[in-house]
């Protein structure tokens, strides 16, 4: 599946989040491709799921599911929120 993560600049918190999500994917045997982008460039990016920290996620408008993460450093929170959406 393909995940787009978003932050203000597209290479800080979003990249960190993408790495965490990919790690969760590996743990569950699911291959996750994806891209970390900034708020100005997520629109039109093909993906199955969008994830971002809450501050950023509330600004996202998309027909794809958007996952809100409060604590980027809490792998358990990320896993709990991402897991229901993981598909091969």
């Amino acid at each position: 599946m393909r995940v787009v993560t978003i932050c203000g600049m597209g290479f800080g918190t979003s990249l960190m989040l993408l790495m965490s999500i990919q790690e969760i994917g590996r743990k569950h045997g699911i291959d996750i491709t994806g891209e970390a982008v900034d708020l100005g460039s997520y629109k039109g990016k093909p993906c199955d799921l969008i994830a971002a920290t809450s501050e950023i996620a509330r600004q996202v408008v998309s027909d794809k599911p958007v996952v809100f993460i409060e604590n980027l450093l809490n792998k358990k929170e990320i896993e709990e929120k991402i897991l229901p959406f993981l598909t091969k």
């Binding site: 600049m9 920290t53 501050e55």
Partner: peptide, 22 residues
């Protein structure tokens, strides 16, 4: 500038901030 325009989202976890810029 990034903090002013994009807000406090760089506070990525409780008590932890990661300032950065392009």
């Amino acid at each position: 500038d990034a903090f002013h325009s994009l807000g406090p989202y760089i506070v990525m976890g409780p008590g932890i901030a990661m300032p950065h810029a392009h």
